[in-house]
Amino acid sequence: MLLITCPWCGPRDETEYHYGGQAHVPYPENPAELDDRQWAEYVFYRDNHKGPFAERWMHSTGCRRWFNVLRDTVSYEVLAVYRLDEPCPALSQAGGNP
């Protein structure tokens, strides 16, 4: 069971959250100009890193707000939690589960 700190509600069990996959995947700026291959990239292709990975979580049984987590996909350690309007912290500044 992961312990994840919601930026608004504080530390809660993993079962309170819903996973949202890779973070920082922006909607295409000019969608009408994309070809099929580029659409496939946007819709179906996501990073699948081994190691620190920026991902989205939603506090579905709490405040129901989305936020981002930097988490190691091997050790599962939560390295940083940050709001959607904040940039992904550099690894050197990520200080573990706050």
């Binding site: 069971m1 992961l2 069990d13 993993e14 079962t15 996973y19 699948n48 890193h49 996909t73 091997v74």
Partner: peptide
Amino acid sequence: DSYNGYGQRGSFH
């Protein structure tokens, strides 16, 4: 388990 993981282990729940 819902999250991406390479740890060959998952959550107890």
